[in-house]
């Protein structure tokens, strides 16, 4: 996660919450989030004991209600 071009840190697991107080300023702020998924969807092409993936796969990316909590 980046705010105004500065990293707010990586998260490897939930909970996906970032305190970005120190990176925000009054006025316009650019919020940028990058989400990386696994190769499981892309690597489905090959046949082997390990593919294509027969497990449930999680959806990719960020979605739902996106919020800022401010005070």
């Amino acid at each position: 996660m980046y705010v105004n071009g500065i990293s707010a840190g990586k998260k490897l697991t939930p909970s996906y919450r970032w305190d970005i107080s120190k990176l925000c300023r009054e006025g316009d702020n650019t919020i940028l989030v990058e989400v990386a998924n696994t190769p499981a969807r892309d690597a489905r092409k090959a046949f082997s004991p390990f593919g294509p993936e027969r497990e449930v796969m999680e959806p990719a990316g960020m979605f739902g209600t996106i919020e800022l909590l401010i005070k």
């Binding site: 996660m1 705010v3 707010a8 998260k11 939930p14 996906y16 919450r17 970032w18 305190d19 970005i20 107080s21 925000c24 300023r25 009054e26 006025g27 316009d28 702020n29 650019t30 919020i31 940028l32 989030v33 990058e34 989400v35 990386a36 998924n37 959806p59 990719a60 990316g61 960020m62 979605f63 739902g64 209600t65 996106i66 919020e67 800022l68 909590l69 401010i70 005070k71």
Partner: peptide, 22 residues
Amino acid sequence: MRYEKTVSLPGISQCIFRPEYV
């Protein structure tokens, strides 16, 4: 996957970013 957005904020003391689903 990259998500970008500009948000205009008033003067604040604390700000937490909270997406529902990652």
